[in-house]
Design a protein around this nucleic acid. Structure first.
Lengths: 221, 221, 221, 221
DNA sequence: GATGAATGAGACTTCATTCAT
DNA sequence: AATGAATGAAGTCTCATTCAT
């Protein structure tokens, strides 16, 4: 029974996805041909379509994989006792991702996914769904903070969440562009944003976040 | 060979660009064919290439047109006497643009330009150049604010500028997605961001901004 | 390597052929993929090629199976004492086959075999060979009728045979199209054709044929 | 204004259709690639799709062109004063078409159209519609014959029409196969069929038809 | 200046067949 | 014997760009 094992199948799938990610990052989604992915991945044309029904399918898969790892960050932040510390951890964790060279391709492909999502309902659903998860995570942290009295009660959890996410999205874009983003400064600004939400008492306790104030420099490639 | 006047020529050019904008917004850059633009604009296939040497040329032209109108907003903000008021005006003006239905297509095409800029040096130059103008405008306002003592001296003008722009970029994205962004709440959060930059004295003086707190409803459509 | 019995092998073969027949009838030969046949038959991709060396092989096998059953009809008609009655029986038997819903798929695939035979020597040989058998059967009946004096001596046996077969072929086509063929009327016309071959004495003795004048309704479906 | 004239356009179209006809006849519809038609016609790939939206479109166009010329034959036969003579003329005219080497390709492609019509609604409509025209022409001639008393009143016009057409369809098939059809004999048999429809008085007056009894031999290609 | 017919390279996807297990 | 994953050649159709009129 030459039926392939699930592990083998998943390995193959990741092999293709990794190749697609490199191609999409380098040439863009529309300028990547299936032949490129074949060359980069080492599998045959036919095999490609054994794992993905369409080129678009690969973009969706990449987006979904990405959200899965983001969901992990969310959970990590939620597990913090102190909700304000949770927020800072979230910013910290996502901020760290902004600088990792390993994720350069993912960021570049992410930006392309934004463009594709304006056209493809499937990609739109995937990408907006991914954002919703983060938004809810932030919203819950803020609400917890309001219940503990650490965060001012008149703060709108959803509005803050959207704004914070928006800021991160813009930074992803700028970093993808290869802009010399000073994440130290941006991180401080974002912490200031958080600080502005707090009651005066809490505000003073904010410490620096290592993601944005690293000992070494977090420069991008 | 009856040469046409410059005005006629510019009219034609705008006619084509307007059609391209609608097409790119609706179908995306890569799924818009020159035939689509011909259909939408009413000019012929050949005429397209009398005004633009390439399809990509149209994206660049659209981006440049956009930056021109943004430069106007920057100048408007700079002309304010009070630099902090100038900052708020800038946020106000750009925020207003987020909600105008007229600019829906421009926003959607803008997001696509981001993706294209990762691949095309020309588009990259145009789009990043556009951002630089805004960044400088903000940076100068902050520096003026620091000179007047309204803004804390340890604030990094460029970092704040990038962060503010990033936030706007993310909001453009979310609005382009058709997300129910509560601009009221986002605006308040952004003003809080600005507030966090100020000396404590200045902080309390921040008033509401009509773009985010409109008398009527701020909804997108 | 557990060898299977001939009976098992033949059962499998028929299972595959039956599936192929349904597929070819539904989608046409060229629009049926081996994957379709796999799905319809329940055997695996590889097994298909244990029983047939090629997709075309299946069409040939289907044609041959068909001719085998037609040969049986021929033999049945030949066994009639009276050659004119034998001719009418032949028309009767084949006419019956035109209406059987069970053979709907066979008729549709038969028409496709005609087209394929123009291209594939193998299919051509099979299909034309099948026709030759019927032609000879008819020719011999006519010759017998001429020897008994029932059929006019100047009648050309081969020409009549070809013409009769042509008529049936056309009716197969029309029935395959789902046309509302009135087989009652067609049968009467064909019997008239036969009648025209006879000496005047024999002509009057022609009775109705149950295939075309059934007690129940002759409708196709 | 480089807009092509209607005549030029039609010439181009026929040039492509003629090439397609040769290809389809030689290799079959499904084994003809658009590249083959390009090679045979001398136009480019792109031009092909300027005149036909799809490969299937060409089959439909070929079928429609064919019906147009058949409609002409029908009209010719209808214009005969004597309806029985009209019937014989129709058989004569279509019979003539069976032997013309010029139409060899058309016949072979016609048979393929039958197969395609089982799968494609468009081709089905075209092909069955073409048959309907002939059927009505024959039916009307028979009804006229019945009104004049030349044809027995109990004859079913539609049944006879279908049967006659069926016979022709079968002969087309056999001739397409390259079978040595003796059209002399078949013609005589068909005239006998017609004769069997007549009153006894009329029957004796049937003369030979030059299409089936030519001075020279009517051999095929 | 304007037109639009023509081009042809190239993209995505399918599918009959093979062969290691 | 049976399986089904893998293959890769090939096919249809698209589309940015050109150029004769």
């Amino acid at each position: 029974m030459p039926k392939i094992s699930d592990a083998q199948r998943e390995t193959r799938r990741q092999q293709i996805l990794a190749a697609a990610l490199r191609c999409f990052s380098r040439d863009g989604f529309h300028n990547t041909t299936t032949a490129d992915i074949v060359r980069e991945s080492g599998v045959s044309q036919g095999t490609l379509y054994l794992y993905f029904t369409t080129k678009e399918d690969m973009v969706v898969a990449l987006a979904d994989d990405r959200h899965q790892s983001e969901a992990f960050l969310n959970a990590l932040a939620q597990s913090e006792q102190d909700p304000v510390r949770g927020l800072l951890t979230l910013i910290e964790l996502h901020g760290r991702g902004l600088t990792e060279p390993r994720r350069l391709d993912a960021r570049r492909v992410g930006v392309q996914g934004w463009a594709e999502s304006l056209r493809s309902p499937r990609i739109h659903a995937s990408v907006v769904g991914g954002m919703a998860l983060v938004r809810e995570a932030i919203g819950q942290l803020i609400q917890r903070g309001q219940r503990t009295g650490q965060i001012r009660p008149e703060v709108d959890p959803d509005g803050v969440a959207r704004t914070l996410i928006a800021t991160f999205q813009g930074l992803v874009l700028q970093v993808a562009w290869g802009e010399p983003v000073d994440l130290h400064a941006c991180g401080r600004t974002m912490r200031d944003m958080i600080g502005a939400l707090l009651t005066d008492a809490g505000k003073l306790t904010l410490a620096a976040s290592p993601a944005f104030d690293p000992p070494a420099e977090p420069s991008l490639d």
